[in-house]
């Protein structure tokens, strides 16, 4: 009855012209076209107030879009919520718990709300989820006594009560100490390896860079970029930097190998590495080969390295603003 393109079915999350205008007239999300490939770890970036959370709430059927549409795992939201959401685990704007229940009882309650959850395996699944986030020892404590990090873990455990095809994690490392952050990141990687698509919103660029394969950047309700993390970072171009007593020869050799925008500053030569074409038919430039070519040409190289463009550079280039500025 409804035609779907293959592309849409392949995407774990797909939005077309998704728009939300709140009653006050404020445009929170403006014509969002988002495409999250299945199997990716997708970073959703943007300053506070840029519309990330509103987008996530629309995806999960909590907020009704003003216009546009959203598909989750190939099915329309919010219409198919009942069949889609059991396959989606979510952590939205931080964990929310019943303080007077124990950690275990909190999970039992959330699991009871899932119509597809088998009551016979409930206790075992709750125990497994608690174990997975490292809360097994604190399972019998009331959630009131949990630290912020423990609450965050319990929220994650709720998202992991069932095997999921898609995990939507809104700021999952918020409130965690560095050790906890590392654990969550490795958990995300682990889940991704199992084939779960992870949609991860964060304002920590490092985090996105470390775990994500794809990313999208939002600012003031609009999507300003999306693609693989490599593509996005390449948008701001990584630079090659060489220190050499023979800068002129170095520049000649580098030019031959396609390095552009070469700048000489005393003994330091820097230039832009060629961006591999999107077809990727031509292999990307291997830096070691470049170094060998320099040495072959008799250039004495003292230091050689790529100054990797960070996502932060990309972000600043895209938005022209600092990261934590409210939109």
């Amino acid at each position: 009855m409804e035609q779907r393109s293959t592309e849409e079915d392949d995407a774990a999350v797909e939005t077309r012209g998704l728009t939300k205008r709140y009653r006050g007239g404020q445009l929170a999300v403006d014509a969002l076209d988002l495409s999250v490939p299945r199997g990716s770890v997708f970073g959703f970036l943007g300053p506070n107030g840029s519309g990330k959370t509103t987008t996530i709430r629309m995806l999960m059927g909590l907020i009704e879009p003003t216009s546009g549409r959203a598909r989750l795992l190939g099915e329309p939201m919010p219409r198919a919520a009942r069949s889609v959401l059991p396959r989606v685990g979510a952590l939205i704007e931080g964990p929310a718990l019943y303080p007077f229940l124990t950690g275990r009882d909190n999970l039992l309650r959330y699991d009871a709300a899932d119509p597809t959850a088998d009551p016979r395996t409930r206790t075992a699944r709750v125990a497994a989820a608690l174990d997975r986030v490292g809360l097994a020892a604190a399972a019998g404590k009331r959630a009131r006594a949990y630290s912020l990090g423990m609450k965050q873990r319990l929220g994650l455990a709720a998202a992991l009560l069932q095997p999921r095809e898609l995990l939507v994690l809104d700021e999952p490392t918020n409130g965690l100490d560095p050790q906890g952050m590392r654990e969550i990141r490795s958990l995300v990687r682990e889940l991704a390896e199992e084939g779960t698509t992870v949609f991860l919103s964060s304002h920590l660029l490092d985090e996105i860079e470390q775990v994500c394969t794809h990313a999208a950047v939002m600012a003031q309700g609009r999507l300003i970029a999306q693609g693989t993390v490599a593509e996005l970072a390449a948008g701001s171009r990584g630079r090659l930097a060489i220190t050499t007593p023979d800068p002129v020869d170095a520049v000649r050799v580098l030019k031959e190998h396609g390095v552009t925008d070469l700048v000489i500053l005393d003994e330091r030569v820097s230039g832009e590495l060629p961006v591999p074409g999107p077809g990727a038919a031509d292999a990307p430039l291997e830096l070691a080969d470049l170094n060998a070519a320099l040495v072959r040409a008799g250039v004495r190289v003292r230091a050689f390295g790529a100054e990797r463009a960070s996502l932060e550079d990309a972000f600043v280039a895209l938005t022209g603003e600092g990261f934590d500025v409210a939109g």
């Binding site: 709430r57 999960m60 059927g61 909590l62 919520a81 009942r82 959401l85 059991p86 989606v88 979510a90 939205i92 704007e93 931080g94 964990p95 929310a96 718990l97 019943y98 959330y110 699991d111 709300a113 899932d114 119509p115 709720a158």
Partner: peptide, 18 residues
Amino acid sequence: GSGTLRYLLVAPAGRTRL
């Protein structure tokens, strides 16, 4: 107010059923 409602709804409890 405590936020637990959103987690019940994405579980998904279903609004009418809840």
